[in-house]
Design a protein around this nucleic acid. Structure first.
Lengths: 176, 176
DNA sequence: CAAGATTGACACTTCAATCTTG
DNA sequence: CAAGATTGAAGTGTCAATCTTG
């Protein structure tokens, strides 16, 4: 099977790919300019806070705040009250290796700490430092504003609904 | 300005972000499984071929084939008949540094060659090797098929049109 | 000095191998 | 040995120097 795409298909693919490149770069740039952290940093900080606090599988903060506007948390598996690396990785949909490296960089910068887990000597628990909490408090509104300005407010309600449906359909189609 | 997003806005953002992550990973994976090259490799190979052959600013191959399904080529600046790194970078919308590194990796793998430019001794011309051409010939249909299966054919004509308009609107909004 | 191009330092990501503890 | 977690090696990307030639 190898013909070309139709004009309509090609237009959509090009438009999607162009948007993806521009928008990601823009959001990352604004976040890094206006806060001390990067997108992956925010993902981790928010996920750690969510697991430490809220306990549950819930992806939404108590105040209606999205957990860092992250994508679907995968089916969560909680362990105890401490935040294990594997549980965090599963919840975020990240590989262990990826998370381990990200935690390493963040630990060096003082955003998180790894403390040996009492209950199970293999590996550590992850905790937010005061600096990590502060950084997250600064970064989250910056990120939400950027998403609002460069994405949400540029679309009408019907457009938002159409985009949601299309993206969800594609995601579902692909996972099937 | 810092309130939360509306439910519709949040749904759209989440759907978009989830799609972006899944789809990119899927396409990259299929390409790398079924060919000897990566997405950035294909971008470069196709852009070099397009500049070496077709000359013009045109982004579409003579046979109606998209140049690697790449995003908008930026306003092209051609120099001579040889492919200079800077011209290639501009055309692709890549930084020089990024392209230089990518070319370095590709040269090591024998996909492209850098030959000293006669007309202007600063820097080299980029050429496809036979292996590079072959790799591109293998990879392009693989990539198009993946885009068709995981993107284009999962959407109806009206959905394709709607998605194109939405993505184009966002891109335009952001560049303005 | 300008322009063409590369490099150093670092952030991010993946895969496969590894180390440690249960 | 299983599971928890990190690490080695390599690809990818950015910014700020840097080196070379015009």
């Amino acid at each position: 099977v190898s013909a070309s795409l139709s004009p309509g298909q090609r237009r959509a693919w090009t438009a999607y790919r162009t948007l993806r490149l521009d928008l990601d770069a823009r959001l990352a740039r604004e976040l890094e300019d206006r806060s001390a952290v990067s997108m992956p940093d925010v993902d981790v900080l928010a996920a750690v806070r969510a697991m430490a606090d809220g306990a549950g599988t819930d992806s939404t903060g108590t105040d209606g705040w999205p957990v860092a506007l992250a994508p679907d948390p995968r089916p969560a598996a909680r362990t105890a009250h401490c935040v294990r690396v594997a549980a965090l990785a599963d919840r975020m949909g990240w590989s262990r290796s990826r998370l381990s490296r990200q935690l390493g960089r963040m630990e060096r910068r003082g955003l998180i700490a790894r403390v040996p887990c009492e209950l199970d000597g293999r590996g550590d628990d992850v905790e937010l430092t005061a600096a990590g909490r502060a950084a997250l408090d600064t970064a989250e509104p910056v990120l939400v504003d950027a998403v609002r300005v460069h994405f949400a407010e540029a679309l009408t309600e019907p457009q938002l609904a159409a985009l949601s449906e299309i993206c969800e359909a594609l995601t579902h189609h692909q996972r099937s």
